[in-house]
């Protein structure tokens, strides 16, 4: 009765290996750097390439948990406001006389609690989609930040707090080192653990996951909490780099972050995508902005270019499907 034909062999197909989205991203990244080198003689050297990362890696911390959120098929648009609120509370706490280390812990706590509130609302009120919940909390968190600080800036941090945003360790930007560590942790979490497997399962079929004993609510709650925590990490680096903070910092971060995740090949309908893709797209968008900034391309034009890139990213999987369908139609 046993079926002996059933193998455990993977069909390694060279063609489909190279037709992965990540290779397209590698190609785009190379092209972007090529163009940058061509446009500016000051671009291509290790120092510039490393230094540039300091200008864009703060958002990248949020890209990591956002990858998980979008794999669920959900979205979190409150992350920008979470950054602002945790940053503002940290500054106010410090200015009230607390030691900086305590202020930093408070910053991380505020971000985490913001994420927990999102998670709780999404899990408890099934009829509310994540977009609606985080749209509300986006306004809420930003509103609280404005109430605390009104339209003023707060800063005056101790000298050593410039280190996260501006410091180097053995010639490598500190932020790049920290980001690399977090990126590895998130990549392992998503691709090598049972937790990551369950994240994919929920994104593909939440009902079947529940029937298979996956604790859907718990996992969603953890991921949204992580998104809040990582937003607070981003707030630390951003505040450190700017030296002071205002309630309107990190405006529009959520869109940048979501754009990077989508460009990284994570499907908004859930269940697909890899961390490596989103990491590549962080560097694509980052270097593109930096390079075009070097030759004084206006910020608005940069936005147009990134928009086009994004349309391309969303279109490609559909083009692939379109061609496949055409092919199968012919075959019959």
């Amino acid at each position: 009765m046993e079926n002996t034909d059933l193998t455990a062999e993977k069909n390694f197909d060279l063609k489909s290996f190279f037709f992965q989205w990540e290779w397209v991203l590698v190609l785009i990244l190379i092209i972007v750097n090529f163009i940058n080198t061509y446009l500016s003689p000051y671009y291509l050297n290790t120092y510039t390439l490393l230094d540039a990362t300091m200008t864009f890696l703060d958002k990248a911390f949020i890209v990591l948990p956002m990858t998980f959120v979008i794999i669920f098929g959900d979205i979190d648009i409150s992350v920008g406001s979470t950054v602002a609120l945790s940053s503002v509370v940290m500054a106010v706490a410090y200015n009230l006389g607390m030691p900086m280390s305590l202020a930093i812990i408070i910053c991380l706590l505020v971000g985490t609690v913001c994420g927990m509130i999102n998670g709780l609302l999404i899990v408890k009120f099934k009829e509310l989609s994540a977009v609606i919940v985080t749209l509300s909390t986006m306004t809420l968190y930003r509103g609280i930040a404005y109430t605390i600080l009104e339209d003023q800036a707060a800063g005056g941090f101790p000298e050593w707090f410039t280190f996260p945003g501006w410091g180097y360790v053995k010639g490598i930007p500190f932020i790049l080192i920290v980001f690399t560590i977090f990126a590895i942790i998130f990549a392992l979490l998503l691709h090598r653990t049972t937790f990551g497997r369950q994240v994919y399962a929920i994104g593909n079929n939440a009902v079947a996951s529940r029937y298979s004993g996956v604790q859907v609510n718990k996992i969603k709650f953890i991921v949204f909490t992580l998104a809040g925590f990582m937003s607070a990490i981003a707030a630390l680096f951003l505040t450190s780099r700017m030296g002071s903070t205002r309630p309107n910092v990190a405006l529009g971060y959520e869109l940048d972050v979501i754009a990077m995740v989508v460009l990284g090949g994570v499907s908004t309908s859930g269940g697909k995508g890899r961390i490596i893709g989103t990491i590549l797209s962080i560097f694509i968008v980052g270097y593109l902005r930096y390079g075009l900034g070097l030759i004084n391309v206006p910020a608005q034009v940069i936005l147009i270019i990134i928009g086009l890139l994004l349309i391309f990213a969303v279109m490609v999987p559909n083009l692939e499907k379109y061609f496949k369908r055409k092919k199968t139609k012919k075959a019959f």
Partner: peptide
């Protein structure tokens, strides 16, 4: 299809989903 399987997953990943531990 809706409650039993993750259709876009392989047989192997489907089978082990309830027994990841």
């Amino acid at each position: 299809q809706k409650q039993g399987l993750v259709l876009e997953w392989s047989i192997e990943k489907n089978i082990t989903l309830p027994a990841l531990d």
